[in-house]
């Protein structure tokens, strides 16, 4: 198991006012489930209603799809971030 952190969207904080959720999990997928349990609003930031993952999930700056996706293994201190497939800019 590894202690990893999921960054919350700007302006959203945990109950104790922190800008990221601390998870204790082996893979990215498990960590996201834990984060969603703590912060339910995060579910629709990552998955559509039918459960399909639509957002980009980054582990230490690299998109997890360039690695093993939700099965990508975690190490202590890993930082995760979620970004919707935005356009323009």
């Amino acid at each position: 198991m590894a202690k990893a952190y999921l960054k919350l969207p700007v302006g959203m904080t945990t109950a104790d006012g922190r800008a990221e959720v601390e998870c204790d999990a082996a893979t990215v997928g498990e960590a996201l489930e834990q984060a969603i349990a703590l912060e339910p609003r995060m579910r629709l930031r990552i998955f559509r209603d039918d459960g399909r993952m639509y957002a980009g999930v980054f582990l230490n700056g690299r998109n997890i799809n360039a690695r093993e996706g939700l099965d990508t293994a975690l190490e202590d201190g890993d930082k995760m971030m979620v970004v919707p497939p935005l356009s323009g800019g």
Partner: peptide, 21 residues
């Protein structure tokens, strides 16, 4: 909807680190 709120919360600067990385 949640997926449209990134622009309000963070805006396009979020792309800087992602594009460089």
């Amino acid at each position: 909807t949640e997926d449209n709120l990134w622009a309000n919360e963070e805006g396009t600067p979020v792309l800087a680190q992602i594009m460089s990385d």
